[in-house]
């Protein structure tokens, strides 16, 4: 809890001590939550009889308020222009293909900054297949059998484009497998740069190249796209329902089946 005096400081905090002998540094530790409960109790007891220490503590609180109230600096015009120019020169986000080069130029963004190399993330997911599948089973539940499903109004598909979107509940996804396996209709995700991002959010590894069928559905009164994918290293099929904003949140539901 010692501080290193800085000759550039107009005042060295280590030299500031209350009339009762409490150092500004000790009070700063208290304010920052660095003291143990015992240390804090002891210090507060000393402060109670030391108005000067209380005033010093108030000074620290004032400092925090001043910091919180600091004004932003206006962005200079030339800086704003160069940012706009750089962004205008950028292509659309590279999200559509698994084989893209996602390596950023310059220093590698840190993962804790939430900039993720999706390929690397997928490689990690592949290594975690068993655990991820188990997690999906726990969260969503495996439907072992396939119920017969006849969506009302459906006259049967005639090609890759699905007909009416069947309405189902999350527990009934498996019943759509016979239908979805015959289509390749990604609905609102067709040609969308969101697709890869949406797939990456599934609890198991869901890759575009593993898609074996897709169909727009209505899941619990919400528009969705049901995507069927092969589960790597297994004979199972993952049926995953994605919402229109699936790039911003996890899938609506997922079911694993043994076709």
């Amino acid at each position: 809890m010692t501080s290193c005096p800085d000759p550039r400081d107009p005042a060295d905090p280590g030299s500031i001590v209350s009339a009762g002998g409490i150092a500004l540094d000790e009070l700063a530790d208290l304010q920052a939550g660095l003291l143990t409960p015992d240390q804090e109790s002891a210090l507060r007891a000393r402060m109670a009889g030391d108005p000067d220490a209380l005033a010093l503590y108030g000074l620290l609180e004032q400092t925090r308020l001043e910091l919180a109230d600091l004004d932003d600096e206006p962005v200079p015009d030339d800086v704003a222009e160069r940012i706009d120019t750089a962004l205008a020169a950028e292509p659309a986000p590279q999200l559509e293909h698994d084989d893209r080069d996602a390596t950023p130029t310059g220093p590698e963004p840190a993962t804790d900054a939430r900039i993720v190399d999706l390929d690397a993330a997928r490689r990690r997911r592949r290594r975690l297949v068993p655990a991820l599948i188990a997690a999906a089973v726990v969260v969503i539940g495996i439907v072992g059998g396939i119920a017969v499903f006849r969506p009302a109004g459906s006259t049967g598909p005639t090609g890759l484009q699905a007909g009416n979107a069947p309405a189902v509940g999350a527990q009934d996804l498996a019943s759509l497998w016979p239908e979805v396996s015959r289509y390749r209709d990604l609905g609102f995700l067709t040609g969308s740069p969101r697709l890869a991002s949406c797939l990456s959010r599934a609890p198991g590894p869901v890759l575009e190249r593993d898609i074996v069928g897709a169909q727009p559905i209505v899941l619990d009164d919400q528009d969705a796209v049901l995507v069927a994918t092969r589960v790597p290293m297994s004979q199972q099929i993952a049926l995953t329902a994605f919402a229109p904003d699936c790039n911003l949140r996890p899938p609506l539901a997922q079911t694993l089946i043994d076709p």
């Binding site: 800085d6 107009p10 005042a11 060295d12 500031i16 500004l24 620290l60």
Partner: peptide
């Protein structure tokens, strides 16, 4: 904590601190 203490000390030194 260390940074705030330095800033608070500066406020005191410049007469801005309410001490």
């Amino acid at each position: 904590a260390r940074g705030r203490a330095r800033l608070a000390a500066a406020l005191t030194a410049t007469g801005q601190g309410r001490r």
